[in-house]
Amino acid sequence: MLVAKHGHVLFEKAYGKRDAKGDDPATLDTRFNLASAGKMFTSVAVLQQIAAGRLSLDTRVGDVLKDYPNRSFADTVTVRELLTHTSGAGDAGLLGTENAANRARVHSVADMVALESKNPPAFPPGTKQVYSNFGFVVLGRMVEVVSGEDFQSYLRRHIFEPAGMAHSGFIDCASTAPDLARGYTADDGKLEFDCETLPGFPAGGEAATAGDMYRFVQALQTGKLIPPALFARATKTYRMFMGLGFFATDYGPNIPKRDFRWGHGGSASGVCTDIRTYPLTGETIVTLSNQSPPGCFSVAKFLHQDYAKTHQEQ
């Protein structure tokens, strides 16, 4: 857990075990699987390419991925639609026990794209919003092509290092590294380990500490990673709960302005992560867990509501 306000950390503490089948406790240096919260890194990489003039929100997939097999997808789906989950891209065929064979045979982001690239959009792009992991795989590949760097190297050089995220990186979920949290699900009373994370997965294949995720938030807020004006556009609500690759949610009639937040959550078997910032109150709340959802989301929401109630901020 980490709670900060206006650039100052108010509370930071680790709880529980790093591995439920072991005895060592989680610490502030424990790295947690971020799951879909890692999509923020892909979003920032795309926004950096937009700032550099190599992409635009209206760039189509086929403008960059020239040999993309399904032309109805390549010629119609835009960066904007991929970032806002309105592309009809669908899932990536890499998560879940049923996709273990797919995970075993992919070795690059290009391989991940090839799994689903023959499929057309599930609906006319821009007409619906359906959360899509594969859309972010496509974005990761686009970043590789326009930057000339592989995805993992790009994130290390242009996001993790500039933001001072020394404990963040890509993970093999089967790793037994002593600083990596290990999560389980209960199956007939037994703890079962599910390994569904791929190193280099642009839809969420990274691990980080709570402190590093706060450094990431600060780097965004100070313009260290992308220009402030572009970041402001990215964290504005475009459709339902989404900005440009960031959640931008809790707003509307009868909802206090203090409840609007940007960030991203993540969930999987034995993984629950939530990174959220409330611009009006200045709060940033980071909850990283090796427990299945929805626990971390409830904790983050409680902390914000308790703070707002205590300070009576409207």
Rank of each mutant, 00 (worst) to 15 (best):
V145R: 06
T84S: 06
K224M: 01
F297P: 06
D306Y: 01
V46L: 09
G16R: 08
G169A: 07
F123G: 14
D67V: 12
G126V: 10
L280Q: 07
A219P: 04
G96D: 06
R215S: 01
A74F: 05
L94I: 03
T209V: 07
R157W: 00
L191C: 12
D179N: 11
G22W: 07
H6G: 08
Y154L: 05
N133Q: 14
Q129N: 04
I285W: 01
G265N: 12
K17I: 02
A308M: 10
F41H: 06
L95P: 02
E161V: 03
T59R: 09
R103L: 13
A52M: 02
G263N: 13
P279M: 08
Y68H: 03
G265M: 10
T209F: 07
G16W: 04
G270C: 06
L83W: 06
R261D: 14
K66H: 11
P69A: 02
S147F: 03
E313Y: 00
K236S: 07
P293N: 12
F302L: 13
P120H: 13
M242Q: 13
P124F: 14
A208E: 02
D250E: 14
L47N: 10
G205H: 02
A232W: 00
G183F: 05
G189E: 13
F302K: 13
E192A: 15
F247E: 15
V271S: 02
R105Q: 09
R80Q: 00
F123M: 15
D150T: 10
F73K: 01
L10V: 05
F231D: 01
Y278W: 10
P256C: 01
V146Q: 00
Q291L: 11
T185D: 12
Y68N: 03
N99V: 00
S147Y: 00
L115T: 09
I285R: 01
S269K: 08
L47F: 05
R156Y: 11
A20S: 08
G245R: 14
V217P: 00
T281Q: 05
F260I: 08
T84E: 01
A51T: 10
F246Y: 12
F302V: 05
A268D: 13
R54A: 13
I255F: 05
S289Y: 01
A110F: 07
G205L: 02
D67Y: 05
E283G: 00
F216P: 04
T27S: 14
D194R: 13
D172P: 13
L34S: 15
T30C: 07
P199A: 14
G169E: 07
S147A: 01
P253Y: 04
M242H: 12
I50D: 09
F123S: 15
K190C: 05
F11G: 02
Q129H: 09
A104V: 02
L95Q: 01
H85C: 04
M142E: 03
K118G: 09
G88V: 06
L82T: 04
A207C: 07
A100V: 09
T78C: 06
R258G: 09
Q129G: 08
K17L: 15
G90W: 00
R60W: 10
T76H: 10
V137F: 11
E283I: 06
V109D: 08
K21T: 03
S269D: 10
G126P: 13
K301Y: 11
P227S: 04
S269H: 10
S72Y: 00
G90T: 03
F73Y: 11
Q218I: 02
E192H: 15
S36G: 14
T281S: 15
H311Y: 14
